[in-house]
């Protein structure tokens, strides 16, 4: 028997993947969104979670990046 699931394949670097796993475990979006943890660089997630993932990731990047203009 073959099982078929609908979702979105996410390709990213290992660091981002770990962050996404963290988001999943802490139920950042209120529920789990990772359907399959495929490998170091790939995740299979719910389609509805993709925009939220991108938004959250951007927020995180903004938080940790240094901008020379902001210090002035």
């Amino acid at each position: 028997m073959v099982n078929v699931v609908k979702g979105s394949l996410i390709k990213c670097d290992p660091a981002v993947k770990q962050y996404l796993v963290y988001l999943d475990e802490t139920l950042a979006f209120g529920e789990k969104f990772i359907l399959h943890n495929l490998d170091e660089q790939h995740l299979f997630v719910q389609i509805s979670a993709v925009p939220m993932i991108k938004e959250k990731l951007q927020e995180q990047i903004d938080k940790i990046s240094y901008d020379s203009a902001q210090t002035k």
């Binding site: 073959v2 099982n3 078929v4 699931v5 609908k6 979702g7 394949l9 359907l35 990731l57 990047i61």
Partner: peptide, 13 residues
Amino acid sequence: RVVDQEGMLYNQF
């Protein structure tokens, strides 16, 4: 940093 593509996952062959 993330690339997403909608698709279908087949497993439990």
